[in-house]
Nucleic acid binder design. Structure first.
Lengths: 226, 226
DNA sequence: TGTACATCAGTGAACGCGCGTTCACTGATGTAC
DNA sequence: TGTACATCAGTGAACGCGCGTTCACTGATGTAC
């Protein structure tokens, strides 16, 4: 993939020092999304991918950790925006919750490397401290609020836990789903949407049939894996 | 910890070549349990921990992967046995299920490094293929059976999913709980037993109060983290 | 009882590799006079 | 229009490190005669 036999790269003209910076971000993002083990990404790999000397990176980032944090921040914001966008067209509290959760799970399964890095705590802490990006807590906030809204509306008592705990449990359920789905591909997984539907039905007390329709509306194409 | 200033180690006497092998397993197990990132364990670290030349390991294992697989197999069997033992003294299907699940979650939280390695897919696949140990599937089998037994007994319809899917969902919920609990220690976590209780209540349809008693009987001491 | 020999358990030095980081440098492009 | 100079964007070689793996070896212990 990186076996470019091209002539040694031409330097950017004077005013355009930012060009390489953008290329570095792009290359690091591509590698983080592509590598089997994104946590092993090295500075020299990024330099090779761009076709530049390893030392060149230091002109734009203090070290590899800064570059990775930059990329992860972008991915995190992308996920948050996708969830908000999906929820924006929801017609009620339940649709809002389903939109957020289904988007979360689909993104996690579509981006296993980034998901494990962002949420799964796979990056070495010295490179990417937990507080570098939201690491899920802000997403969790929106899910908690949305779930509380559903439970309040229906007055259906699924359980007596406070909103915080109920939201946390829903998040952990979704995370476990995505994490095992990504890491244990050898299991005979049912369609992802079925699992999302059942999980949301359990945690809201709403009938699965109703939720299934909303889930399909969010990500209709997701069936069996491979 | 490994700063032993002792004299260079004495070789084992003739018949006892297995002594070093045991020490290697012990040291690797200790390091896997102790390291912040067990997946970065190296052959030379193990050799240093034992106080032996790196090359000595090759007399007992073909490579580091074989040693690690050996240790992980032991940990996996230990967990399976703990779950079976806990279930052995259960007085009914629900107690059986609670015993298995609570033991699983407590073990995962007590052994974050090994849990992430065994179940969380943290080890490089070329060192530890998913099929090397059960990787959770056998544990999953016992949970599926136990859950099916509970749901059949009470004839309470929690949902229409088949046993396989219901068991899988319970497992993913427990895994998400353990994984996030371990990786996101900065969150204000409720007591672990409360989360286990609520999860089991959701997935069985049994009242939380009844389950809470059973959970406390399995692991009474587990309160807030730290 | 003595001695030559085999085996066992592990050593120590060396190899080539990829890594992060440093440092003096280069060479094209713009700017001042 | 010409030329000296500054700056920008990145280079290339080198460093020391820890790693997995190899290979000939060592030195104590047992065994055969």
């Amino acid at each position: 993939m990186t076996d470019e036999r091209t002539a040694p790269r031409r330097r950017n003209p004077r005013g355009q020092g930012e060009t390489l910076k953008a290329e570095l971000v792009e290359a690091a993002a591509r590698l983080l999304a592509t590598l089997d083990r994104p946590e092993t990404l090295t500075l020299r790999q990024v330099a090779r991918e761009v076709g530049v000397a390893p030392a060149s990176i230091y002109s734009h980032f203090p070290d590899l950790g800064a570059l990775i944090r930059h990329v992860l921040r972008l991915r995190y914001e992308e996920l948050a925006r996708l969830m908000d966008d999906a929820a924006a067209s929801a017609t009620g509290p339940l649709a809002d919750l389903v939109a957020r959760c289904a988007t979360y799970a689909h993104w996690g399964v579509a981006h296993p490397g980034e998901y494990g890095t962002l949420i799964g705590g796979r990056m070495p802490t010295e490179l990417v401290p937990l507080t570098a990006h939201g690491a899920g807590e802000e997403l969790l906030g929106s899910v908690i609020a949305s779930l509380a809204s559903v439970r309040q509306r229906t007055a259906r008592s699924v359980g007596p836990e406070p909103s915080w705990q109920a939201g946390l449990l829903l998040w952990t359920a979704l995370h476990g789903l995505v994490a095992l789905y990504n890491d244990h591909g050898n299991l005979p997984w049912p369609p992802l949407n079925d699992l999302i539907t059942d999980t949301l039905s359990l945690h809201t007390g709403e009938p699965a049939a109703e939720i299934a329709k909303l889930v399909e509306a969010v990500g209709p194409s997701s069936g069996h894996r491979a």
